[in-house]
C-alpha cells in the first residue's frame, strides 16, 4: 500500500526557539497515527505545520490526492490550500468552541462545509445534518439549537460531525478529548474509533494521554523538545519503550 501523506525533515521554528525539528513520517490510508508527548514538546506545532496551518521553516509535506496525484503542500497557493482543507481534509480542535460557529445552530454548523462545497438544497442539507447528529449521538431534534446550549462533550461531538460530514480522507485532531471528563472521553473515543473504521479515515491525532493512543492508534510517535525521540507500533512503544523519555512517560501512567 502506498502512503497518503509523506512528511520529510519538517521543522518549524519560532525565531530561535524550536517548535518542531526534523520530523519525518509516512501515513497510509485508513491509518491513525498518534503524536504523544507532554505540553511544550512540539506536538501541536507539528500537527499544525503538517496540516498547513503554520508555514514550515524547512522540510516538506506531500499529500496524495483523491485523483492519485501528489501535492507539495508547501508550494500550494491559498486557494488550493483552502480547497484541500475543505474537500479532502478535516481539523478537529481541542476546544470545540474554536472549531464551531457558536452564533449559528447545530444544523448550520454541520451543513456549513456542504454549503461551501456548493450544495444548495435546504431539505437535503437538513437531512444530512440530522443524520450526522444521530451518528455522533446528538438528538436530531436539537438541530436548531445553538452549540452554546450544548455540554462540552456534545460540542466536541458536534465538531466531529461538522468535520466529517464531507467525508474527508485525512483528519487532524488536536487533543480532541482533553478537557472532558472521563465518561464523556470514553464516549468520544469510541465514536472516533467507530467513525475512523467506518469511513476508512486516515488521521493524525495529538494527545498527551497514552491510553488514548493505545485505544485508537496502530502507530505512535513520541516527541520531546520538538523532536521525535521514538516511533513505531503503539503497543511496542507502550510495552517496550526504548528511549529514556518514553520510559518515563510510560512509567508515569496511573494504572487501575
Amino acid at each position: 500500500m502506498s502512503a497518503l501523506l509523506q512528511v520529510r525533515g519538517l521543522s518549524r521554528h519560532y525565531g530561535h526557539r524550536i517548535g518542531c525539528e526534523d520530523v519525518s513520517f509516512d501515513l497510509h490510508p485508513g491509518e491513525l497515527l498518534c503524536i504523544v508527548g507532554e505540553s511544550g514538546s512540539g506536538k501541536s506545532t507539528l500537527l499544525n505545520t503538517v496540516a498547513a496551518q503554520l508555514a514550515p521553516t524547512s522540510g516538506s509535506v506531500r499529500y496524495c490526492q483523491k485523483n492519485g496525484s501528489w501535492l507539495d503542500i508547501g508550494m500550494l497557493n491559498e486557494a488550493d490550500r483552502r480547497r484541500l482543507a475543505r474537500e479532502e481534509w478535516g481539523f478537529v480542535t481541542q476546544n470545540p468552541r474554536d472549531g464551531l460557529r457558536l452564533n449559528v445552530s447545530a444544523g448550520a454548523n454541520v451543513a456549513e462545509r456542504l454549503m461551501a462545497l456548493g450544495m444548495r438544497n435546504y431539505s437535503q442539507l437538513r437531512g444530512i445534518a440530522r443524520n450526522w447528529l444521530e451518528r455522533v449521538e446528538i438528538d436530531p431534534s436539537r438541530i436548531d439549537d445553538p452549540p452554546t446550549a450544548f455540554s462540552g462533550g456534545m460540542q466536541q461531538r458536534l465538531q466531529i460531525a461538522r468535520t466529517l460530514v464531507t467525508q474527508p480522507r485525512l483528519v487532524f485532531m488536536d487533543e480532541p478529548t482533553a478537557g472532558l471528563d472521563v465518561s464523556v472521553q470514553a464516549r468520544i473515543l469510541d465514536l472516533l474509533r467507530r467513525l475512523v473504521n467506518e469511513l476508512g479515515l486516515a488521521a493524525v491525532m495529538v494527545t498527551h494521554d497514552l491510553a488514548v493512543a493505545r485505544l485508537l492508534a496502530a502507530r505512535t510517535m513520541v516527541m520531546q523538545g520538538g523532536r521525535v525521540v521514538e516511533t513505531g507500533l503503539t503497543d511496542q512503544i507502550l510495552d517496550d519503550p526504548q528511549h529514556p523519555y518514553t520510559q518515563l512517560l510510560v512509567s508515569s501512567v496511573l494504572t487501575t
Partner: peptide, 9 residues
Amino acid sequence: LRVVYANYR
C-alpha cells in the same frame, strides 16, 4: 511470545 508478536523489539 511478545518478541515473536513484535510487541517487544
